[in-house]
Design a protein around this nucleic acid. Structure first.
Lengths: 123, 123
DNA sequence: AAAAAGACTTGTGGATTGCAAGTGAGTTTC
DNA sequence: GAAACTCACTTGCAATCCACAAGTCTTTTT
């Protein structure tokens, strides 16, 4: 009889956790090639599917759809009625999502310093 | 004749870049589930293959091998003779790798704040 | 000299990605 | 008010990537 069998660890959204390390946990949520770029766009105030889709990295629409849902599931973003008063809705960051700001800033600073081909976006 | 055909953008290691955004560029290098965990271990002073392999997240050895090589290619880590004077060598961060510290710290802080199951590692 | 540890490499099935095309609701144009 | 168009996705599919297990080769320990 195992003394300390942890079962499966889960995060708040019910997805499995690899460990109790907060870095590992953050990576379980946004550790892939696309998620933080969507969050970057959200930080810039973009809110609609087509806006994210139009970013220069060219995220495939199926991936974008999946990532947006993941952000909703984990409570990093929420849906709100579109700003233009149309029947559609947009996405915006929650406080949990906005508080990834320091991560993005640190990445931006690192990229600017060490990969000189890159340029900070105006806006 | 296209006026501004960019060809393929590449970063310093010759890998293709998705855009000029420094965040996208950082993610091209370490935007996956494992790379930043290896860097975390390196920050903690771990240096040998078996050390990374023993971390609680359980990185598969083939992935670890590939990621270590990528860190070398991009100049985030370098190989040095092992500290114990044996014939083997270890890995350690370069300045470029160490300067990802703020990214890891921001992720750690975020994880601790928003995913309360997590715990900061005592080393 | 034999056994064990360390650092990978290889093989394989399953999951994820990237790309193209399709769908259906909402919006604009004529 | 019907047709065309935009938007926000889905679906299909080939290619790639990942996780897990096992194997190999070198170095270290006994």
């Amino acid at each position: 009889m195992p003394k300390n069998q942890p079962g499966k660890l889960k995060n708040k959204a019910g997805d499995p956790l690899r460990s109790l390390c907060p870095v590992a946990c953050a990576l379980d949520i946004c550790g892939d090639r696309w998620t933080l770029l969507v969050i970057r766009d959200l930080m810039f105030g973009r809110s609609r599917f087509k806006d994210f889709s139009a970013s220069p990295e060219g995220i495939p629409t199926n991936i974008l759809s999946e990532r947006l849902n993941r952000l909703l599931r984990h409570g990093l973003a929420e849906q709100v009625p579109a700003a233009d008063g149309s029947m559609r809705y947009g996405y915006q960051l929650t406080e949990k999502g906005r508080s990834l700001g320091p991560v993005l800033e640190a990445m931006r600073d690192w990229g600017l310093k060490w990969e000189p081909t890159t340029k900070a976006m105006i806006q």
